[in-house]
């Protein structure tokens, strides 16, 4: 199954507010795609449409298609839970559950019934924590509450929790916005490593971050996709004046 994401003529309304207007993007497999734009332009909304977590908000209506793995996820017969297992999400503020580190990573496996044998779960927990480079730091305190970790570690843990249910796509919504610059850099390094295995879409208000990690960049403004191209082009030679104004800091 291809992990390509194709967003076609996608519209979203919060009750009467038209938050996404005819968005078209094609996200390629196993690379990092960034979404940038001023606050309130609809980046999070678009990201949250890809795993249909917007469905939980009352009054949300959509129109258009988002195709993941060859299927329109907004078609009637989509199993949202299976979709979300395949399309993991990491949020702006680290949000580990107030339970042990181990239980956090094992949560999806256990509750979804993906694995029940302890040896299998143990192994997945270890692999997931290794994948986010957290294992060596915390392998001796897996039973401790996840809330005792630093913010950076918590965010890594949240990524591990997603990886444990074996998604193909990982969506990250400003994952570094509550972290300091050093932690931010380390999470960026982690994302660059992870892109060999996962298709990654990252929302960021930090243009340098987009420039550093992503291959493609989408620039949004007031619910519209203004321009979508290779990151280098967006930052050095964009087609649209709005993009140029924004990336060169002349926005507003």
């Amino acid at each position: 199954m291809s992990a390509k994401i194709q967003i076609k003529n996608f519209n979203l309304w919060y009750t009467d507010f038209h938050a996404l207007k005819d968005v078209n993007i094609s996200v390629e497999e196993k690379r990092i795609t960034a979404m940038i734009g001023p606050s309130g332009c609809g980046k999070s909304t678009l990201l949250r449409a890809i795993n249909r977590i917007n469905d939980t908000i009352e009054g949300v209506r959509v129109n258009g298609e988002i195709i993941v793995g060859g299927k329109n996820i907004y078609s009637e017969n989509t199993d949202v839970d299976i979709l979300r297992r395949n399309v993991g999400m990491v949020f702006q503020r680290p949000n580990p559950f107030p339970i042990s580190i181990y239980e956090n990573v094992a949560f999806g496996l256990k509750v979804n019934g993906i694995a029940s044998r302890k040896s299998v779960i143990d192994e997945t927990v270890q692999q997931s924590l290794e994948a986010v480079l957290l294992w060596d730091d915390i392998k001796h305190k897996l039973k401790k509450s996840a809330l005792t970790l630093t913010l950076e570690q918590q965010q890594r843990l949240c990524i591990a929790r997603v990886i444990a249910v074996k998604p193909q796509i990982i969506l990250l919504d400003e994952p570094c916005s509550s972290l300091d610059p050093v932690a931010t850099q380390r999470i960026e390094e982690l994302m660059i490593q992870l892109k060999d295995i996962y298709t990654i879409v990252i929302v960021t208000h930090n243009m340098q971050q987009a420039a550093r990690v992503s291959r493609d960049t989408a620039f949004m403004l007031l619910g519209e996709l203004i321009e979508f191209a290779e990151t280098g082009k967006i930052f050095t030679n964009p087609n649209r004046k709005e993009t140029d104004d924004y990336v060169s800091g002349r926005f507003g």
């Binding site: 939980t56 839970d81 299976i82 949000n95 949560f107 949240c158």
Partner: peptide, 27 residues
Amino acid sequence: VPHSFREASLSLGVSRWQTIRHVVLPN
């Protein structure tokens, strides 16, 4: 119970009812 816990659970593909049972109720 913070909304972020529910979203975290749902986004792992955990169903609504299992989210209530395993995340919302215990907290």
